[in-house]
Design a protein around this nucleic acid. Sequence first.
DNA 1: CAATGATCATCG
DNA 2: CGATGATCATTG
Length: 205
Amino acid sequence: MSGHTLGELAASAELEVPANLRRAKGWVGQLLELHLGATAGSKPEQDFPELGVELKTLPISHSGKPQESTFVCIAPLTGIAGVRWEASNVCNKLSCVLWIPVEASADIPLAQRRIATPFLWQPTPAQIHQLRQDWEELMEMIALGEVESITAHHGEILQLRPKAANGQALTHAIGRNGEMIQTRPRGFYLRSHFTYSLLRDVFTL
DNA sequence: CAATGATCATCG
DNA sequence: CGATGATCATTG
């Protein structure tokens, strides 16, 4: 797919290209999943379970920098006593990722945006250490009932941010006194400066 | 609602 | 103008 445009891929799949991504935010990712034969659905698993590979598109600017952070997975806010990093969804999802950089500058019409060179990535021991540290810090705060005091400033490469259909969505979490509270669902995201470092490592920029 | 796919829109 | 917090579509 490298070098081809999203318009070409959409045409071969007989899909309409939306006017913009405002009401189709996951369109690019789903188009690429379709072409690579990933199992559609909303299962909390890797995109290619047989290969142990997770697929993620990476929106990049003209200068090749990621334009957005990368969503990893929903953060568990309850039932997290004793959860270990090795058994976490974050660890599982990021153990092997096929990154597919895609042009995403606002001045390029969606159909004309090109797919860059994908690369397969497995975190280095140092990256795993960094991910694990961030994850443990955030999970500890959640476990201690401090989820509502977590902001996106926490975590060096992995951050926690709201992840929901809107601000009214609520889920259960642990409160400051160990009681059950209602709060906005959160998700783990990779900071763009981290995904940029992955691009620099692979393409020796 | 929770999970998938993410980008939008506003603020500092 | 980058990052945070908010939001969109869809499926089970």
